[in-house]
């Protein structure tokens, strides 16, 4: 790739940051060029973010419907899935699945809740509730 062909498309997922790219100058010599982003990368990043959001929104509705405990929503909201949460908390997946049942979750001792709040980086108050509708009620 030549230095003047390094994409400078000001992509939103860089949030005004730049990445260093390696490209050749007019003499064919490699240099480092700061790039404001390539649309191709933006499409891929946005797709991944949209998927995470889709999962969180779906979970929100299922929690509202009483199918799952709020933990289910917060797991996705923090960009995790069952596997990541299991590794971050040290709980087996089957144990987390159990905690996803509203009746069981509401009786969880503080000691176990703390493992989730630690792994998710949110307060117990946040974990046991859903955020207001505006963001996720669509």
């Amino acid at each position: 790739m030549e230095a003047n062909n390094v994409p400078q498309q000001n992509i939103s997922t860089y949030a005004n940051n730049k990445k260093a790219m390696y490209a050749t100058n007019e003499n064919g010599k490699y240099t480092v060029v700061s790039s404001t982003g390539w649309e191709v990368e933006e499409i891929a990043t946005k797709q991944a973010l949209a998927e995470l959001e889709r999962l969180a929104e779906k979970a929100y509705r299922q929690v509202v419907a009483g199918e799952f405990s709020p933990l289910y929503f917060h797991m996705y909201e923090r960009r995790m899935d069952l596997q990541t949460l299991s590794q971050a908390t040290g709980f087996f997946k089957w144990r987390i699945r159990r905690h996803l049942k509203p009746a069981i979750f509401s009786r969880l001792p503080t000691r176990l809740l703390a493992r989730y709040t630690e792994a998710l980086g949110i307060s117990a108050e946040t974990l046991c509730n859903l955020p207001p509708l505006e963001k996720y009620g669509r």
Partner: peptide, 29 residues
């Protein structure tokens, strides 16, 4: 999502472009 994942591993994670191929070409130079 699978195709997008490939793009991210190749470009997004900080590879200097083309999944480190340009960095290595710079090294060879």
């Amino acid at each position: 999502l699978f195709l997008g994942h490939i793009v991210r591993m190749q470009e997004e994670i900080g590879t200097g472009g083309a999944g480190f191929r340009f960095i290595y070409a710079s090294f060879l130079q």
